[in-house]
Amino acid sequence: MDSVCEECTDAKRKYDSCFNKWFSERFLNGHTDLQQCDELFKTYQECLKKGLVDKKIDLGDMNRTVLGSEEDKLGEPKRPEKLG
């Protein structure tokens, strides 16, 4: 999938393929060495941060973390009884 900043799509895809490989082959087998994709992530993030500033994209409160915080409006999703 493309990056919102066209010029970063290449860096993003390199990082994505590193991550997907790590996720399926390492993480799911109990390894926690996420750092093996760090360099590709850094290159991608540098491009993205610059691109978002250059494009003057207003990201509002993107950096806020909602999941697991008090701002979570939804609580625990209710399981329908029919699901068994």
Binding site: M1, D2, V4, C8, K12, T32, L34, F41, M62
Partner: peptide, 19 residues
Amino acid sequence: LSEDVVERHLTTDNKLVTK
């Protein structure tokens, strides 16, 4: 139209957190 990872880390109890 587009998809970007803006944050990703493992917590101390090894949960994978992504934004």
